[in-house]
Design a protein around this nucleic acid. Structure first.
Lengths: 341, 341
DNA sequence: CTGAAAGCGCTTACAG
DNA sequence: CTGAAAGCGCTTACAG
């Protein structure tokens, strides 16, 4: 509760001197005075008032973690184990650097801009971007440095951290091809809308092409979201005349839904259908058989984003960076050779 | 970027009048002036500076969502789908009320007190409390209203939102008993440390007692945490001479681990072992067989906590409230009658 | 209905 | 090495 004024009074110095002690301006205060002031601050458990600081410095040390609202629900964190994990790592890294994390879900760019201005945000991090129009608008109108995860626009200067999605899609598909599969489906929330999904889809097509194969429309499962989406894919598969022998799914939860839906309809994984997922998040190890999946290093992803953000905060010419993190295949139990080649 | 001063200058009024317009003090400003000022604010996209406001009002409109650090990791959100969901709902409810959410993991009470003071926090919410010593200390030393989830101390005035854990443990066990089970184990992270687990354990004992049964030490699996803990329980079960026919697990992820560990060791669920979980979180529907579990309404839990918090912020005599939310049994596929009674 | 003034807690040039 | 003063953007009594 004590202010810099109280400390100064008790130490018999000016508030300015206390301020210099707080900021370790060694050149501006004698060691003896500094020591005395420090003791008094410790005794009073002095904590600076961030509002006062922020008012002067136009910087609050607050970083916004922005979560777009999906399908009307702000509890989007819940839908996806990946998001909770990423946010957890971001909080950890930012706290270590003495920054504060404000979590905010939003559906309109104006909300974000107002938030940024009202708190004099030092930076912002966009997790799980969904609509391109909104994301682009935000990138162009933001006043503070903004780091975007999992989205990149070639034509816009922006800071982003992406995955090598093309390689991810390629690696998954190639792995299935090498196992002998030739009939490979692809399931994703919305193939043509997100650059992440597009990249994975490109990789899928490239791998197929290397084996002189092309995609088949009826094996492309678009709009498959989370577990329910996966179960719908399984339902569709169960009615097919000619089924794929393997499916690449762009998310673990989706892959798990396919797997589960198949099991409930009497198709065995991996005997009757091989399934490969994406992310290596919690569900991957939970289900039986355990999911073979394309893993990403979420901690590294968070760290890269934080690094970009801080560089941008220090250097106002640093407004363009595109990190592409690598993926790796984690072999588990949901893939095997097809029954009859 | 424009300040209240700019608006006042352009409108040809004092800053005080602008302030009154902002705060809708209809009595203190003529409709015509108010209208004019509002137009100018809209045109300039005026956004108030929270730092300046907070400096005067000693209130920042920030609510801290506190996450204790478990096992050295701040990414505790990730360990548990329940937490992410709860935090998501809290953010949604608080934002609706025009409050801001700062997420902060911590391991020492002093960090929290400093955080509270430096930002003039209006309130705090503690999610996933772990150590009683820390939690009690925080409750006693906090300056701002604090709502605690899933922990209650009879001897301390505190605001908390709990589950009827005793009934949860009772309902789960009673359900197994009615299915014909007489050999029922109990698996939990740490039976004697948390009031939540203790409550569930009490309910378990009570249900057993109604059937003239008592707990068996070797069927109490203490220290079983998350999926790995569950798999360790399955491992222990596989070596037992006399096995329980059913297990009550205090968390879905734990139940899933038991289920999975059993399957990998050739025991079928529910044929050889019935398993019942807690929370009805995402994993419950993901695994095969789907988990029978004691469900809680996380949205209602979040809403109750927010309600307590706001009442406490309005009324400084309101510092003691103990909400106990009900649970309900969700029957799915992981329980059936024991093979040989 | 409207305004001039003081002040919230701090930092930043500017003097000495 | 130390201090007096101005000011960040806003609100709150106090006058009129």
């Amino acid at each position: 509760m004590s202010t810099i004024k109280d400390i100064a009074a008790e130490a018999g110095v000016s508030v300015m001197t206390v301020s210099n002690v707080i900021h370790n301006n060694h050149a501006r205060v004698s060691p003896a005075t500094a020591q005395r002031v420090r003791e008094i601050m410790a005794r009073h458990q002095y904590v600076p008032n961030m509002a006062a600081r922020s008012l002067i410095s136009k910087s609050s040390h607050i970083i916004a973690v922005l979560l777009p609202i999906w399908h009307g629900s702000a509890a989007s964190m819940l839908l996806d184990p990946y998001t909770g994990q990423l946010v957890g790592y971001l909080e950890e890294l930012l706290r270590e650097k003495q920054y504060y994390v404000m979590v905010c879900s939003f559906d309109q760019v104006e909300q974000v801009l107002a938030l940024q201005q009202t708190w004099q945000m030092d930076g912002m991090i966009l997790v799980l971007p969904h609509e391109d129009a909104i994301t682009r608008d935000l990138i162009q109108r933001t006043q503070a440095p903004l780091v975007v995860f999992d989205r990149h626009y070639e034509d816009l200067p922006m800071l982003d951290v992406c995955l090598n999605d093309r390689r991810g899609g390629y690696t998954a598909t190639r792995y299935l091809l090498e196992k002998g599969h030739r009939k490979i489906g692809f399931a994703a929330p919305s193939i043509y809308e997100s650059s992440v999904i597009q990249g994975r889809f490109q990789g899928y097509l490239e791998a197929l092409a290397e084996y002189q194969l092309r995609e088949r429309k009826d094996w492309l499962f678009d709009g498959a979201v989370h577990q329910e989406g996966g179960e719908a894919v399984a339902e569709a598969l169960s009615h097919m005349q000619e089924r794929p022998t393997a499916v690449v799914a762009t998310e673990d939860l989706l892959a798990c839904g396919i797997l589960k839906g198949c099991q409930e309809r009497g198709m065995q994984v991996p005997e009757d259908l091989s399934v490969i997922g994406f992310d290596d998040s919690m569900p991957a190890r939970l289900i039986t058989p355990q999911l073979t999946t394309i893993a990403q290093d979420i901690r590294q992803k968070a760290a890269t984003g934080v690094q970009q953000l801080f560089q941008a905060m220090e250097d106002e010419t640093y407004r363009n960076a595109h990190a592409v993190l690598d993926i790796r295949l984690v072999e588990r139990q949901s893939v095997r050779e097809p029954g009859n080649i």
